[in-house]
Design a protein around this nucleic acid. Structure first.
Lengths: 234, 234, 234, 234
DNA sequence: GATGAATGAGTATTCATTCAT
DNA sequence: GATGAATGAATACTCATTCAT
């Protein structure tokens, strides 16, 4: 489960000394607060100060900013995976799916950094991708169950789920602190479109992203590709 | 239409010399490409290099980064206002609204910078705001007309329109270059939820943003609020 | 004695690590040399190069140029305050005053930066001002003592003292390295005019600056007042 | 009288076309105002704007900023030379000298740029030096006449005159706009020390600058000598 | 001749990252 | 292990100077 180079625990997966683990948690908590409030451009110095440790300690736990951000985000995607798994246990398949969307959006809302990661992908190749890879199977089961039950339109696709989550996060981010729960309004709008029982649901005009496309998309967002140069007409 | 202080043409509105105008366009085109590809954190040095001019030239035309971004963005928001106005001319009120959503999303999709401006508003306080201020009235007419005609659910609100646009842009941005059209899928989902004719439409769980809240949100995005300090438990 | 925000040592006043303190001194010494030789427009890059450290190190110790200049200058103004206080201990009141003028001019002479700060005050709003505020009272006691003793003409005013110091610094700066002690010549000329015993001393034609005027002067030096526009006669 | 390279009139000393000459005056007047108000760091763009011409025109008349500053200053030194010559015509030799000091200080006072030139000499090698060279002979006659008449102490030296002028300018510059005439106070103090009739005038402790030293001083102020490097002990 | 557009080296400042203590 | 000092490349912006129109 551990992957080399992500954080310093990796190579041997040896458990950290108690105080080291405490610091690690402290840093993650501080980073969550700082990045959430300020976005990802917050400096690691600020994170360290907020955590009450030196920058050096941050770098001891996380080889670079990327890794810290990843660890943070991976935990949340993990949390979402957990939500999806728990949603499978819901007695009603439709309710299970919807409450997963709700709970996921609740996690994303108010989290500026999370949205930045998803939308502008300067971070997030490593554990994030793998965490998400764990999520898709769970979501797939959730979706298939609902479709089997006939509570969800047939052309809905598991990869639609993360996209919808991000869209809701966008709404929440846009409304900001003032109205953090605004996304519920749009979730309702969307779920009203998800029922198969609706009269004449419009056919969806294009295929959902395939899991491979989601992976490819994330990868490409990270390359700092030079903007293709222009023919110089000087 | 021209507003003082936004770009150097403003005060006299005297037309630029031919070569200057050519370079201005070149810079604008380069900025569009660079910001679209890299987001607004791209440096003006990179814009200048891409345009094949010196940084000084960029600064001659646009007194600061903000102004350049504004000039770029203002044109596009203007374009969106234009779309809303044209949509009012559509014979069918429902079609008018939907095609505005489509056309707007088409403009936003693939344009990372545009979305950044709208969502995090680090830039865009002059012409951009004024342009946006023109948009809401137009959208309002569009929405009211559809509601008068009974083609749109009554609890939909004009401010929902920009939020939905950004959500679609998010979807597009997430799918990236691979599937720029993907947002159409989610627009369909949403519009299916907008019809009043639907059987038992779910009540929307909270009020839409008021115009004042949108304005406040934009303003607050700019404050560099200190992250509240933690009790240090060293 | 330490004032928050002036240099990074301030908040906790915790002593710097040995190497840091060494570098801090190195930077201060380099800054003194560079500013003295080149004036305050010298860049911090040059200071850093001269000190043999990276610019970042300079900025770690002093949050901005102002603070570095302040730290440098504050020490010297402090030194002058000390001189004034020591001069009060001189047995003869006249000698006390004169030797303060001498010692002060000795400090100012050859120090282009010091003079710039005093005269154009682009820097120096924190400790510098406070240090200067300490100087005037000390000088006042010096002047009043001499006047009580009848060794100083009665219409001389404490604020005349700094003005005279700057005049002497001007003379020194003008003569430059070639004749750094030239100011002594003009000090003699001036002090010959200060004795009350002189036959028919000319009445001084206008009042000295009030302390408030000195403060106002410094403040106004900072405003970037627009040059009033001209009637264009094209 | 014209010296190559100083301004574009030089090589042939051919009189400028009428409009060119008008522009030249306009620029000089604008430069005087701008530099006086803002100091020498004012940009030539601002000067041009204030004069109502393009920067190119400024550069056509004056090959670089230095030359413009020089031209400006040279005119004033010229004006001072004129004053010295006129002072020679005064019936009383003492009054002649003093009123020259007064009139000179009046010219210098309120002129931040002039003071900057003198004190920090980033400009002023060319015509300025020559103009001053014209001044010293005139001043010398003024001083010698007063000493011959016994109205001036014998150890006073012609080169003391410009130094005193700059000292007075310093006082004026320090007091700023608030009290432009403050220098009169210090002139009185100094002139009270200049009378030979005074009881026991103190001997002046060092020789005045020689004309050669003044010249050397100015020259050296202009070299951008690197601050001598330090032994690096890294 | 006049204009103002273009240039690019220079300035203050920030921040991810490395390394001596 | 923890700390925080040091580094330098990067970024927004300015301005003296040159040159095309």
């Amino acid at each position: 489960m551990a992957h080399a180079g992500e954080d310093r625990r990796a190579p041997a997966a040896r458990p950290l000394r108690r105080d080291a683990e405490r610091n690690r948690q402290r840093i993650l908590r501080a980073a969550a607060e700082v990045f959430t409030a300020r976005g990802l451009q917050a400096s690691l110095d600020e994170v360290a100060r907020h955590a009450g440790v030196g920058v050096g300690t941050v770098y001891r736990r996380f080889p670079d900013k990327e890794s810290l951000v990843e660890a943070l985000f991976a935990e949340r995607v993990q949390a979402m995976v957990g939500l999806a798994e728990r949603a499978l246990a819901a007695p009603d398949s439709w309710t299970g799916l919807i409450s997963f969307l709700e709970d996921g959006a609740t996690l994303l809302a108010r989290d500026r950094a999370l949205t930045e990661i998803f939308m502008y992908g300067r971070y997030g190749h490593g554990r994030v991708r793998r965490a998400r890879d764990q999520m898709l199977p769970a979501v797939t089961r959730l979706v298939q169950r609902a479709q089997r039950d006939g509570t969800l339109r047939a052309d809905f696709t598991p990869t639609d789920v993360p996209v919808i989550e991000f869209m809701l996060a966008t709404a929440a981010g846009y409304a900001g602190q003032a109205r953090p729960e605004i996304w519920r309004r749009y979730l309702t709008l969307i779920t009203d479109g998800l029922r198969p029982s609706r009269d004449q649901p419009s056919p969806l005009p294009c295929d959902a992203l395939s899991p491979a496309e989601i992976a490819a998309t994330m990868r490409s967002a990270l390359q700092h590709q030079p903007v293709p140069a222009w023919p110089q007409r000087h």
